[in-house]
């Protein structure tokens, strides 16, 4: 569904993506992993058209996305940071989102799932960090789209909401949806991910199942496997 061909992106002197090639066609949950600054968020932003790459091509359903915006009606997106107009209430914000993007929504189910009923008539500026994240999830996940992109979705969530989010995502994966997710919580990846894409220094280091990554790194858990990739290779001194 999403094909990335030789993607380059620099911010000033910092090169983030260095000729990244990736085919994201698998259904289910794909965890995009990598150390801080490896280019995970930039890659997701490139797919969404929020960041324009310096070179390379992204195809969505075999069509290049450059300069287009309508392809985004097939993508749901949950951003890393949730900041919405401070003077609007949650209800007004929800109405605005529905007004801007008409179509069937499942907001009632999500309001119930994240226990947002009491917060609906509060202004955004009066919400706690966790509740803001719940509103972010509500707005991001309310459309039933074939592709969902989530950037660190569990930030600030309480245990109950975190559990409900996992249930929701598992159900989506069961319905053959494609879910792309970035996270630093390895237990979440181990429990939820069907596939892993590991980015290192702006290039794809590994793609495959979590078990094959563990196997490749010589056993143990996923956390140990990731740590062994990131551990600097010891310099052999022959002197």
């Amino acid at each position: 569904m999403i094909n990335i061909q030789n993607l380059y992106k620099s911010f000033g002197k910092t090169t983030v993506l260095r000729g990244l090639i990736l085919d994201l066609n698998q259904k289910g949950i794909t965890a995009i992993l990598g150390p801080n600054g490896s280019g995970k968020t930039t890659l997701l932003k490139c797919i969404l058209g929020l960041v324009i790459p310096n070179d390379g091509k992204i195809l969505f359903d075999q069509k290049p996305i450059e300069g287009k915006h309508l392809y985004r009606q097939h993508i749901s997106h949950v951003a890393q940071i949730a900041h919405f107009p401070e003077n609007l209430t949650v209800y007004e914000l929800l109405q605005m989102a529905k007004d801007l993007r008409p179509g069937p929504t499942r907001d009632d189910h999500l309001i119930e799932l994240f226990e947002l009923e009491k917060e609906m008539h509060k202004k955004m500026r009066n919400l706690s960090g966790g509740n803001r994240q719940k509103v972010n999830l509500l707005l991001g996940l309310m459309y039933d789209n074939p592709v969902t992109i989530l950037d660190e979705p569990s930030n600030g969530l309480d245990p109950v909401s975190y559990l409900n989010l996992k249930k929701f995502l598992r159900e989506e994966a069961r319905r053959n949806k494609q879910i792309l997710i970035t996270t630093h919580i390895m237990s979440f990846v181990e429990e939820m991910a069907d596939h892993i894409v590991f980015i290192l220094e702006g290039k794809i280091y590994f793609t495959g199942s979590p078990s094959s990554l563990i196997e490749m790194q010589g056993g143990g858990g996923l956390e140990e496997a990731i740590a062994s990739i990131l551990k600097p290779t010891p310099v052999v001194n022959n002197a």
Binding site: G49, L50, H69, I75, A79, I81, A82, F84, L139
Partner: peptide
């Protein structure tokens, strides 16, 4: 961040 949310819409 709100602009990012809007830009991610069609």
């Amino acid at each position: 961040e709100f602009l990012t949310f809007l830009l991610a819409q069609p």
